[in-house]
Write a protein that binds this DNA or RNA. Structure first.
Length: 292
DNA sequence: AAGCACACCTGCTAGC
DNA sequence: TGCTAGCAGGTGTGCT
């Protein structure tokens, strides 16, 4: 499923193609892909004719800023969403739910087999003293998200997100209101890089472990973006040009149960955290009770 | 009020 | 070989 690195790859693909373009037409083939709007038709009518001024990202959400300022289209790829840039003459893939036609003749297609993806308008207040570290205001629909794991993460923010929490760390890392952008893949990889077991209570971290986790977060996400994201066998992530990512080749533990750890060759184990699964190297990420 | 269960949906896989 | 049942995933809601 697309997490922060995959969404950032798509953002970087779409930004030069959409910024400055006018949205000439929007076709919604599946109403479910447009949420929080009076209707799909109302959404299309409100966005048609407007100019894209930039494309941003908060966590796993894309933010298409429009002129005149004050409103943006927020897009979430869900579990299987893709944005594909194509010429109108080419056949549309199955599950093409929304098509944005641009004034330069190109189409941007929202393809989403599992239909967990969504898009909607959201007000954006002008940047002011209350805006984020980047000086960019968030759409109002995204103010509940925690700091962006790539652009807004500090040691202080991480400490605040975990202090006093009894929930297991793995789940806290994936809680978008604590930290925005991490899902199952990258929480596993960051925990491995920091040599911390995700089954620990979030509030049990010491200063050294927090430092390692913050550094691991920055490095893993940066490397994953450089490798253009992860495309697993049972997922279908592709970038704006239809190409898969390569970071899965570098995964240390995620989806590698029973395979040797890349660092120490100990067999990776799969663990359950409630309804979710995670992967861990028992040797590199020991449980506290097993520490010497 | 933190934390959990559940709904949403469809393609793939494991199991008969 | 063909079928079905179950799983997987992120977000939002609602319950305790």
């Amino acid at each position: 499923m697309p997490e922060l690195p995959e969404v950032e790859v798509v953002r970087r693909d779409l930004d030069p193609l959409l910024t400055g373009r006018t949205i000439a037409r929007i076709d919604v083939n599946r109403d479910r892909s447009v949420r929080r709007e009076p209707s799909a038709a109302a959404f299309a009518a409100a966005v048609t004719g407007r100019v894209v001024t930039s494309i941003g990202r908060v966590g796993k959400f894309l933010v298409v800023h429009l002129a005149p300022p004050g409103e943006a289209v927020v897009v979430h790829l869900g579990m299987s969403g893709q944005w594909r840039v194509a010429d109108p003459g080419t056949p549309r893939p199955a599950h093409t739910h929304v098509v944005w036609s641009l004034d330069d003749g190109r189409e941007v297609r929202f393809v989403d087999p599992r239909t967990f993806g969504q898009m909607f308008r959201s007000p954006v207040r002008p940047a002011d003293g209350a805006s984020g570290p980047l000086g960019v205001s968030r759409p109002e629909a995204l103010v509940h998200l925690g700091p962006d794991a790539l652009t807004e993460l500090t040691r202080e923010a991480f400490a605040a997100a975990t202090a006093g929490r009894r929930v297991v760390l793995k789940r806290r890392l994936m809680d978008q209101t604590a930290l925005a952008g991490l899902g199952n893949i990258y929480s596993d990889e960051i925990l491995f890089r920091a040599a911390v077991a995700g089954s620990r209570p979030a509030g049990s971290l010491d200063a050294s472990e927090i430092e390692h986790l913050v550094v691991a977060c920055e490095r893993v996400l940066t490397e994953a973006i450089a490798a253009r994201g992860s495309t697993l066998s049972d997922e279908q992530f592709v970038d704006g040009h239809g190409r898969p990512g390569r970071y899965q080749e570098q995964h240390a533990v995620h989806a590698r149960a029973g395979l040797p750890c890349r660092r120490c060759a100990t067999l990776v184990v799969r663990e359950r955290y409630g309804a979710r699964s995670g992967y861990r190297c028992p040797s590199c990420q020991p449980l506290p009770s097993l520490r010497s």
